[in-house]
Design a binder for these strands. Structure first.
Length: 590
RNA sequence: GUGCCCAUAGUUUAAUGGAUAGAACACUAGCCUUCUAAGCUGGAUAUGUAGGUUCGAUUCCUACUGGGCACACCA
């Protein structure tokens, strides 16, 4: 729909930086400074852009201070650069506030939801796999970190011009399934009293959630009485045989979990282009393992079938247990191959927590040895733990998504009602849901991936400070002003009005901040780092809120009002665009 | 034992070689007859230890200390 020329045009701020770089290069008669060398001074009183002169000084055998002074005396000012000043080893540039404001605001108002996007990825086909969960187990905050992080990265890569496909891989086949089915059969029938406290969940929530509770019970019982393991093994064999009542029960309960997951994805507004199931790859995997064993690529050791990767310093990877049953790589290998051959991707990303980094190094090495040259990346992140220790689906020491969601929703509904007694139930609920989902996602994304998150429920359910609610609130505030102004579309805002009316220093800082946004998208993409965007948006919102409190937007001269409205519209646009990349929706009012 | 990750304010954290280490929470003093107070303004507190590289180190290197994780039949 949108004009592609707009979409792929270089951001204005980059053009300005390039002009500066060109001007410097002309003075020193050498191609040495690039646009990316221009940084933003830590203190805005120093200027708007800055060139550290350390490298240049080295090249021309001067001190960096001399270099900065030399350049400032020589530089020819172009129309947007008002003046330069050397501060120590830095050459600082002060831009023409009005011209910059006009340029940036026009840029944003014309590109709208496309502002900040780039074509850096060159349409390369990337598949990103995340939310790899087990059926028959609880869905907890650990999974939430995975899916929020994975989804944000997928969106960010898309914004950087990659052709991304989001996929999920569900482990619906394994001993955990047999355990759950065993407990379901045994205790639901024979010991109803013990399971009855759980029954209400079946109605209230969903059956997938219920199964997760059963799994915990199964692990407890098996711990108490180890002989039951033979019964579980039998169920496993029955499921593998693909016939009989156990197999049918597997099919039925598997669907409960899948439905439960679908409900969660729907609530989170996260969509996958494709979902793979382990059970669909097992047979293919066993064939493949058989072939590789015949070719002696895989060998037998201590009764198990392994890939010996010791010469690559990667130890050994066990593929089949001594009893011949399959381990994780059996399905992972054919899935990876399908991605390369059938989906024809150039790059395969796996978003899985850091504890599996050795596993992925081994898997990638095997694929490489099998001749796959495509790029494979394990995008790892640290796990989520609870204040009292590690989470464990096995023991039920988890905060399930469902419980968290419900608790959060209750709290937000209360907060909204406190503020808006006149809102009807439906309106309250719709807005509350968006605030809750935003809060959960933001909480998971705002810290860098290599930090362990100690999940504190009190902390997560806060709605002030560095939270998504703060950003949503900022947008709601802007909406409110705009709706009161009766200026509903930017058509009524003329750029000649903007030109000379945004000279306030806070307005200027906001403009600079807005101009940076495309660079943030790029950095977030290069580093697979959504927290970069979260941080940026928070700073932008902080600057806006400061501005909001210091000036009147509506009660002022018509022309100034027009200019200020244009400015806050662009702020809103950028916050909305950024939140979109984090998978967070905004609300009209709150 | 080997490898990987982490260590910054009371707490959660930002800064991947540059200017005065930036926030949030908590605590505290203010700001609503004025565009949404889920907001704004002010206030104290921080780079685990010892070396090294560098004009410059929270950032890179080495050792140590503390915490976490992984390393053959869990996923």
């Amino acid at each position: 729909m949108q004009n592609k020329a707009i979409l792929f045009e270089r951001p204005q701020i980059e053009k300005i930086k390039q002009d500066i770089a060109d001007a410097i290069n002309k003075i020193v008669k050498k191609d040495i400074v690039e646009a990316i060398n221009l940084i933003y001074p830590p203190n805005q009183n120093f200027g708007d852009l800055s060139l550290p002169c350390f490298e240049l000084a080295k090249e021309f055998k001067k001190t960096s201070v001399e270099m900065a002074e030399f350049l400032t005396s020589k530089i020819k000012l172009d129309n947007i650069i008002l003046t330069t000043k050397a501060i120590g080893p830095y050459l600082n540039f002060i831009l023409d506030k009005s011209k910059l404001a006009t340029t940036i605001i026009e840029e944003i108002l014309s590109t709208k939801q496309f502002y900040g996007l780039n074509s850096f990825g060159n349409k390369e086909k990337v598949m990103i796999e995340y939310s790899n969960v087990n059926t028959h187990k609880e869905y907890h905050v650990g999974h939430l970190r995975n899916i929020c992080y994975g989804d944000a990265v997928a969106k960010i890569l898309l914004a950087n011009g990659y052709k991304t496909t989001s996929v999920s891989y569900i482990n619906d086949f394994g001993i955990h399934v047999a355990k759950t089915i065993w407990a379901y059969q045994t205790f639901l029938k024979e010991e109803k009293s013990n399971i009855i406290p759980l029954i209400p969940f079946v109605e209230e929530k969903n059956k997938g959630y219920f199964l997760g509770k059963i799994y915990v019970r199964a692990c407890e019982e098996l711990e108490k009485n180890k002989e039951n393991k033979t019964a579980v093994d039998l169920i496993m064999k029955n499921i593998e045989s693909k016939q009989g009542s156990d197999y049918e029960l597997w099919q039925e309960t598997r669907q409960w979990s899948i439905d439960g997951l679908a409900k969660i994805y729907d609530e989170l507004k996260i969509k996958f282009d494709q979902i793979f199931y382990e059970s669909e790859f097992i047979d293919r995997g066993l064939d493949l393992v058989g072939q590789l064993y015949t070719k002696r690529f895989l060998v037998k050791s201590e009764g198990a079938v392994i890939a010996d990767l010791q010469k690559y310093d990667l130890g050994v990877m066990v593929i089949l247990r001594s009893d011949g049953t399959a381990l994780y790589p059996v399905a992972d290998l054919p899935l990876a191959i399908e991605k390369f051959k059938k989906c024809k991707i150039n790059k395969s990303i796996y978003v899985v927590d850091t504890r599996q980094s050795l596993y992925f190094r081994q898997l990638f090495k095997i694929l490489e040895l099998l001749g796959f040259k495509q790029e494979m990346k394990h995008l790892s992140y640290e796990f989520v733990k609870l204040p009292e220790g590690m989470m464990s689906s096995r023991t039920g020491k988890v905060i399930t998504y469902e419980d968290l969601y419900e608790q959060a929703l209750e709290k937000v509904v209360l907060e909204i009602k406190k503020r808006h007694e006149d809102w009807n139930e439906e309106k309250v609920n719709n807005i509350a849901k968006k605030i809750v989902i935003g809060a959960l996602k933001f909480e998971m994304i705002k810290v860098s991936a290599d930090k362990v998150i100690t999940f504190d429920i009190e902390q997560a359910l806060r709605f002030d400070g560095f939270t998504s609610a703060y950003l949503q609130y900022t947008v709601a505030r802007i909406n409110s002003i705009i709706s009161k102004s009766k200026v509903e579309s930017q058509k009524s805002i003329k750029s000649e009005v903007v030109l000379d009316n945004l000279k306030d220093i806070k307005e200027h800082f906001l403009i600079i901040k807005l101009a940076k946004y495309p660079e943030i998208i790029k950095i977030a993409g290069e580093n697979y780092d959504p927290s970069e965007i979260a941080k940026y948006l928070f700073e932008l919102a902080q600057e806006f809120n400061d501005y909001y409190h210091s000036v009147q937007i509506l009660k002022t001269e018509e022309e100034i009002m027009q200019a200020r409205l244009a400015l806050i519209m662009t702020v809103r646009q950028v916050v909305v665009n950024g939140l979109e990349l984090l998978g967070i929706e905004v609300v009209e009012e709150m």
